[in-house]
Amino acid sequence: PQLPVLTPEALIARIMEAEPPDIYLMRDMSGPMTEATVMMSLTNLADKELVHMITWAKKIPGFVDLNLLDQVHLLECCWLEVLMMGLMWRSVDHPGKLIFSPDLSLSREEGSCVQGFVEIYDMLIAATSRVRELKLQREEYVCLKAMILLNSNMCLSSSDGGEELQSRSRLLRLLDAMTDALVWAIAKSGLSFRQQYTRLAHLLMLLSHIRHVSNKGMDHLHCMKMKNMVPLYDLLLEMLDAHIMHSS
Protein backbone atom coordinates (compact mmCIF):
# COMPACT_ATOMS: atom_id res chain seq x y z
CA PRO A 1 0.00 0.00 0.00
CA GLN A 2 1.15 3.54 -0.78
CA LEU A 3 2.09 5.78 2.08
CA PRO A 4 -0.21 8.73 2.41
CA VAL A 5 1.64 11.70 0.96
CA LEU A 6 1.89 14.47 3.49
CA THR A 7 3.22 17.93 2.82
CA PRO A 8 6.25 18.87 4.95
CA GLU A 9 4.00 21.17 6.96
CA ALA A 10 1.44 18.43 7.59
CA LEU A 11 4.19 15.94 8.50
CA ILE A 12 5.64 18.35 11.05
CA ALA A 13 2.18 18.96 12.49
CA ARG A 14 1.76 15.20 12.94
CA ILE A 15 5.12 14.71 14.66
CA MET A 16 4.49 17.74 16.89
CA GLU A 17 1.26 16.03 18.02
CA ALA A 18 3.24 12.84 18.65
CA GLU A 19 5.51 14.56 21.18
CA PRO A 20 5.39 12.85 24.58
CA PRO A 21 4.08 14.78 27.61
CA ASP A 22 6.37 16.03 30.38
CA ILE A 23 7.39 13.00 32.40
CA TYR A 24 8.00 13.39 36.12
CA LEU A 25 10.20 11.23 38.29
CA MET A 26 7.86 11.73 41.28
CA ARG A 27 10.33 10.68 43.92
CA ASP A 28 11.55 12.36 47.02
CA MET A 29 15.03 13.66 46.17
CA SER A 30 15.58 15.47 49.46
CA GLY A 31 17.96 12.85 50.88
CA PRO A 32 21.69 12.73 50.16
CA MET A 33 22.64 12.07 46.55
CA THR A 34 24.74 8.95 46.28
CA GLU A 35 25.85 6.90 43.31
CA ALA A 36 23.01 4.47 43.96
CA THR A 37 20.25 7.06 44.41
CA VAL A 38 21.29 9.06 41.33
CA MET A 39 21.48 5.93 39.17
CA MET A 40 18.15 4.72 40.53
CA SER A 41 16.51 8.02 39.68
CA LEU A 42 17.97 8.15 36.19
CA THR A 43 17.05 4.59 35.31
CA ASN A 44 13.61 4.94 36.83
CA LEU A 45 12.96 7.99 34.71
CA ALA A 46 14.40 6.35 31.58
CA ASP A 47 12.10 3.38 32.05
CA LYS A 48 9.06 5.66 32.20
CA GLU A 49 10.23 7.66 29.19
CA LEU A 50 10.76 4.52 27.12
CA VAL A 51 7.10 3.58 27.36
CA HIS A 52 6.17 7.03 26.03
CA MET A 53 8.87 6.77 23.35
CA ILE A 54 7.21 3.71 21.85
CA THR A 55 3.87 5.52 21.73
CA TRP A 56 5.68 8.46 20.11
CA ALA A 57 7.31 6.26 17.45
CA LYS A 58 3.98 4.68 16.57
CA LYS A 59 2.53 8.13 15.90
CA ILE A 60 5.24 9.04 13.38
CA PRO A 61 3.48 8.74 10.03
CA GLY A 62 4.56 5.56 8.28
CA PHE A 63 6.44 3.98 11.18
CA VAL A 64 3.86 1.30 11.92
CA ASP A 65 3.78 0.39 8.22
CA LEU A 66 7.36 -0.88 8.48
CA ASN A 67 7.62 -4.53 9.30
CA LEU A 68 7.50 -5.28 12.99
CA LEU A 69 11.07 -6.56 13.20
CA ASP A 70 12.34 -3.33 11.65
CA GLN A 71 10.32 -1.29 14.14
CA VAL A 72 11.88 -3.27 16.96
CA HIS A 73 15.44 -2.88 15.61
CA LEU A 74 15.12 0.85 15.05
CA LEU A 75 13.88 1.46 18.58
CA GLU A 76 16.50 -0.83 20.12
CA CYS A 77 19.24 1.06 18.30
CA CYS A 78 18.13 4.64 18.92
CA TRP A 79 16.47 4.76 22.33
CA LEU A 80 19.30 6.37 24.28
CA GLU A 81 19.94 8.92 21.52
CA VAL A 82 16.26 9.88 21.58
CA LEU A 83 16.34 10.20 25.38
CA MET A 84 19.46 12.36 25.16
CA MET A 85 18.01 14.59 22.44
CA GLY A 86 14.99 15.21 24.68
CA LEU A 87 17.28 15.92 27.64
CA MET A 88 19.22 18.46 25.60
CA TRP A 89 16.02 20.15 24.47
CA ARG A 90 14.76 20.44 28.07
CA SER A 91 18.13 21.76 29.24
CA VAL A 92 18.70 24.33 26.52
CA ASP A 93 17.54 27.29 28.63
CA HIS A 94 19.49 26.19 31.72
CA PRO A 95 23.20 26.61 30.95
CA GLY A 96 25.43 24.32 33.00
CA LYS A 97 22.60 22.06 34.17
CA LEU A 98 20.90 18.98 32.83
CA ILE A 99 17.13 18.88 33.27
CA PHE A 100 16.32 15.18 33.25
CA SER A 101 12.71 15.90 34.18
CA PRO A 102 10.79 18.87 35.59
CA ASP A 103 11.50 17.41 39.05
CA LEU A 104 15.05 16.12 38.49
CA SER A 105 17.92 18.33 37.42
CA LEU A 106 21.54 17.49 38.09
CA SER A 107 24.51 19.80 38.41
CA ARG A 108 27.95 18.54 37.40
CA GLU A 109 28.84 18.11 41.06
CA GLU A 110 25.77 15.98 41.72
CA GLY A 111 26.52 13.94 38.60
CA SER A 112 30.08 13.37 39.75
CA CYS A 113 28.99 11.06 42.55
CA VAL A 114 28.38 8.41 39.90
CA GLN A 115 31.65 6.86 38.79
CA GLY A 116 32.39 7.53 35.12
CA PHE A 117 29.38 9.78 34.68
CA VAL A 118 31.12 13.16 34.57
CA GLU A 119 32.64 12.43 31.17
CA ILE A 120 29.17 11.80 29.75
CA TYR A 121 27.73 14.74 31.66
CA ASP A 122 30.30 17.07 30.08
CA MET A 123 29.59 15.75 26.59
CA LEU A 124 25.87 16.31 27.12
CA ILE A 125 26.50 19.85 28.39
CA ALA A 126 28.71 20.56 25.36
CA ALA A 127 26.13 19.23 22.92
CA THR A 128 23.40 21.24 24.69
CA SER A 129 25.52 24.40 24.38
CA ARG A 130 25.78 23.73 20.64
CA VAL A 131 21.98 23.39 20.45
CA ARG A 132 21.73 26.73 22.27
CA GLU A 133 24.20 28.41 19.90
CA LEU A 134 22.24 27.14 16.93
CA LYS A 135 18.97 28.42 18.47
CA LEU A 136 17.27 25.17 17.56
CA GLN A 137 13.57 25.66 16.80
CA ARG A 138 10.90 23.29 18.04
CA GLU A 139 9.99 22.19 14.52
CA GLU A 140 13.63 21.43 13.74
CA TYR A 141 13.93 19.55 17.02
CA VAL A 142 11.01 17.21 16.31
CA CYS A 143 12.34 16.51 12.81
CA LEU A 144 15.81 15.69 14.11
CA LYS A 145 14.42 13.37 16.76
CA ALA A 146 12.36 11.48 14.17
CA MET A 147 15.44 11.28 11.94
CA ILE A 148 17.43 9.73 14.80
CA LEU A 149 14.81 6.98 14.97
CA LEU A 150 14.57 6.36 11.23
CA ASN A 151 18.32 6.57 10.63
CA SER A 152 19.37 4.44 13.59
CA ASN A 153 20.10 1.23 11.76
CA MET A 154 20.95 0.87 8.09
CA CYS A 155 21.27 -2.89 8.15
CA LEU A 156 17.75 -3.95 9.04
CA SER A 157 16.11 -7.30 8.32
CA SER A 158 18.94 -9.55 7.23
CA SER A 159 17.05 -11.78 4.82
CA ASP A 160 16.14 -10.09 1.55
CA GLY A 161 12.70 -11.46 0.93
CA GLY A 162 10.01 -9.34 -0.67
CA GLU A 163 8.51 -8.00 2.53
CA GLU A 164 11.88 -6.95 3.97
CA LEU A 165 12.88 -5.10 0.82
CA GLN A 166 9.55 -3.32 0.77
CA SER A 167 9.93 -2.29 4.39
CA ARG A 168 13.43 -0.99 3.69
CA SER A 169 12.34 1.10 0.73
CA ARG A 170 9.47 2.47 2.83
CA LEU A 171 11.96 3.45 5.49
CA LEU A 172 14.12 5.30 2.97
CA ARG A 173 11.07 7.16 1.69
CA LEU A 174 10.16 8.10 5.25
CA LEU A 175 13.65 9.47 5.77
CA ASP A 176 13.33 11.51 2.58
CA ALA A 177 10.01 12.91 3.77
CA MET A 178 11.59 13.82 7.10
CA THR A 179 14.48 15.53 5.31
CA ASP A 180 12.00 17.57 3.26
CA ALA A 181 10.25 18.53 6.49
CA LEU A 182 13.51 19.66 8.10
CA VAL A 183 14.45 21.67 5.00
CA TRP A 184 10.99 23.26 5.09
CA ALA A 185 11.38 24.14 8.78
CA ILE A 186 14.77 25.72 8.14
CA ALA A 187 13.42 27.69 5.17
CA LYS A 188 10.79 29.31 7.41
CA SER A 189 13.53 31.24 9.20
CA GLY A 190 14.04 33.67 6.34
CA LEU A 191 17.73 32.81 5.94
CA SER A 192 19.49 33.10 2.59
CA PHE A 193 19.87 29.87 0.58
CA ARG A 194 23.51 29.68 1.53
CA GLN A 195 22.70 30.11 5.23
CA GLN A 196 19.94 27.51 4.93
CA TYR A 197 22.14 24.72 3.70
CA THR A 198 24.85 25.64 6.17
CA ARG A 199 22.25 25.35 8.92
CA LEU A 200 21.04 22.01 7.57
CA ALA A 201 24.61 20.73 7.75
CA HIS A 202 25.08 22.08 11.28
CA LEU A 203 21.89 20.43 12.49
CA LEU A 204 22.72 17.08 10.91
CA MET A 205 26.26 17.20 12.31
CA LEU A 206 24.74 17.42 15.78
CA LEU A 207 23.41 13.91 15.24
CA SER A 208 26.85 12.35 15.04
CA HIS A 209 27.74 13.87 18.41
CA ILE A 210 24.52 12.53 19.89
CA ARG A 211 25.30 9.05 18.54
CA HIS A 212 28.73 9.27 20.14
CA VAL A 213 27.43 10.33 23.58
CA SER A 214 24.76 7.67 23.40
CA ASN A 215 27.36 4.96 22.77
CA LYS A 216 29.35 6.22 25.75
CA GLY A 217 26.20 6.27 27.87
CA MET A 218 25.25 2.76 26.78
CA ASP A 219 28.68 1.44 27.82
CA HIS A 220 28.34 3.23 31.13
CA LEU A 221 24.91 1.80 31.84
CA HIS A 222 26.09 -1.66 30.88
CA CYS A 223 28.99 -1.26 33.27
CA MET A 224 26.66 -0.15 36.08
CA LYS A 225 24.49 -3.18 35.44
CA MET A 226 27.50 -5.51 35.54
CA LYS A 227 28.62 -4.04 38.86
CA ASN A 228 25.08 -4.43 40.22
CA MET A 229 25.15 -0.75 41.01
CA VAL A 230 21.54 -0.36 40.02
CA PRO A 231 18.78 -2.91 39.61
CA LEU A 232 17.50 -2.73 36.06
CA TYR A 233 14.15 -4.13 35.19
CA ASP A 234 11.40 -4.12 32.62
CA LEU A 235 11.73 -2.25 29.41
CA LEU A 236 15.03 -0.51 30.18
CA LEU A 237 16.78 -3.81 30.86
CA GLU A 238 15.36 -5.29 27.67
CA MET A 239 16.45 -2.29 25.60
CA LEU A 240 19.94 -2.25 27.10
CA ASP A 241 20.45 -5.97 26.51
CA ALA A 242 19.19 -5.68 22.94
CA HIS A 243 21.56 -2.81 22.21
CA ILE A 244 24.54 -4.64 23.68
CA MET A 245 23.61 -7.69 21.63
CA HIS A 246 23.39 -5.70 18.37
CA SER A 247 26.68 -3.95 18.94
CA SER A 248 28.71 -7.03 19.85
Binding site: I54, L68, Q71
Partner: peptide, 13 residues
Protein backbone atom coordinates in the same frame (compact mmCIF):
# COMPACT_ATOMS: atom_id res chain seq x y z
CA UNK B 1 12.10 -8.28 23.45
CA UNK B 2 8.74 -9.19 24.93
CA UNK B 3 7.77 -5.89 26.50
CA UNK B 4 8.81 -3.83 23.46
CA UNK B 5 6.86 -6.11 21.12
CA UNK B 6 3.88 -5.97 23.42
CA UNK B 7 3.89 -2.16 23.45
CA UNK B 8 4.42 -1.97 19.70
CA UNK B 9 1.53 -4.28 18.92
CA UNK B 10 -1.10 -2.93 21.30
CA UNK B 11 -3.61 -0.74 19.57
CA UNK B 12 -3.80 2.84 20.83
CA UNK B 13 -6.88 3.36 22.92
Amino acid sequence: HTKLLQLLTTKPE
